[in-house]
């Protein structure tokens, strides 16, 4: 297993915080696999990704385990953590504009990690960066190397960010809403660049997005998060065909897609803030199917043939799933 997160619970130190920001999160990514992580804002997707690099807010209390390969991230020694961050795992953030230092040149950004963290000679780092810029589809790399971030478009910048992320040939890429700040055509371009690169390098990707359709189309498997918990984990193809958690069904109903006749139907209520504590299922207050049980039911994940679901009322019977994918899929 490339990435293996088990029972990860993170609590922030703030006084207004009444529930953990991550609550017993579990997910896995295998080498070469693209795993989607979907949910509304504040559901804990980004925190999960940052926890993989141990980039947590100061004073946060962490419980559980996160491993990248053989490295236990949460207890790794400083040198091991630096090795992990600088070479083995790369992260691509949502907004390329805010990720590049506005007062430094694009070239500085591309070579900084190689030079400062890995000790690559400057000339070599520069040559590598120029190659990568070409590889992610940036023309005139020499010229762009000397430009400032504000002189480039968002799509180009995200390619720069991708190039920087790939420069160390990482095993795992954490893509945190990497394309949601881009317009639709640019998004498609960046995604196809990413897909090609992943296939040639056999890199695992944790793909975080708000967009369930995108996740289903782009990923092998998808985890749906709500209020700091993973509520449903499925094969991407099964998710639309047969969603088991009411929240997943709600997300699909929100955005039925272009080829659907259904009108968009929002989920009532708003995502809960960290100051809301729950006695039972966190989704119960917004759930159309909720019963009295839900108000006190402490969520646990029931296994499915192709993943799991955390709903007391979910139908966990198999619906003709491929019998060859069995126990090892179910965590």
């Amino acid at each position: 297993m490339l990435l293996d997160i088990e029972n990860l619970t993170v609590t922030l130190p703030s006084a207004e915080t009444r529930r953990p920001v991550l609550d017993e999160v579990g997910l896995t990514v295998r080498p070469g696999e693209v795993v989607g992580l979907v949910g509304e804002s504040g559901s804990g997707k980004s925190t999960t990704a940052r926890a993989v690099l141990r980039l947590l807010p100061e004073g946060a209390a962490v419980d559980g385990r996160a491993r990248v390969g053989r490295t236990d991230v949460l207890s790794a020694a400083p040198a091991e953590l630096t090795e992990l961050r600088s070479r083995r795992v790369s992260m691509v953030f949502q907004d390329p504009r805010s990720v590049l230092n506005p007062v430094r040149r694009v070239g500085d950004f591309l070579t900084e990690r190689l030079v400062l963290a890995l000790g690559t000679p400057k000339a070599e780092a520069r040559a590598r960066a120029l190659d990568l810029m070409a590889e992610v589809g940036l023309n005139r790399p020499e010229e762009r190397f000397r430009q400032f971030p504000h002189e480039m478009s968002g799509g180009m910048l995200q390619r720069v960010v991708l190039a920087a992320a790939l420069a160390t040939e990482p095993e795992l890429l954490l893509a945190d809403k990497a394309t949601s700040a881009l317009d639709a055509t640019t998004q498609a371009e960046v995604l196809s660049v990413l897909r090609d690169l992943r296939e040639t390098r056999g890199m695992g990707v944790l793909f975080i997005t708000h967009d369930l359709h995108l996740a289903a189309a782009y990923c092998h498997r998808v985890h749906v998060m709500y209020a700091g918990r993973v509520v449903e984990s499925r094969e991407a193809s099964a998710l639309f065909a047969d969603p088991r958690h009411p929240y997943t069904r709600g997300l699909i109903a929100c955005n039925p897609g272009l080829d659907s006749d259904l009108a968009p139907e929002p989920i009532p209520g708003a995502p809960p803030s960290l100051s809301t504590a729950f006695t039972g299922c966190p989704f119960a207050p917004r759930c159309a199917d909720a019963t009295q049980v839900c108000a006190t039911w402490r969520p646990e994940t029931f296994p499915l043939d192709d993943g799991g679901v955390a709903c007391v009322r979910a139908d966990t019977t198999s619906r003709g799933a491929d019998p060859s994918r069995t126990e090892e899929e179910i965590r």
Partner: peptide
């Protein structure tokens, strides 16, 4: 974010402070 990104890429804190924050 660019400071978080620099940290995420394993750059030592003193470089982050000098090249990203102070600069």
């Amino acid at each position: 974010e660019h400071v978080a990104a620099a940290r995420a890429s394993g750059i030592a804190e003193r470089h982050v402070v000098r090249r990203h924050v102070l600069r």
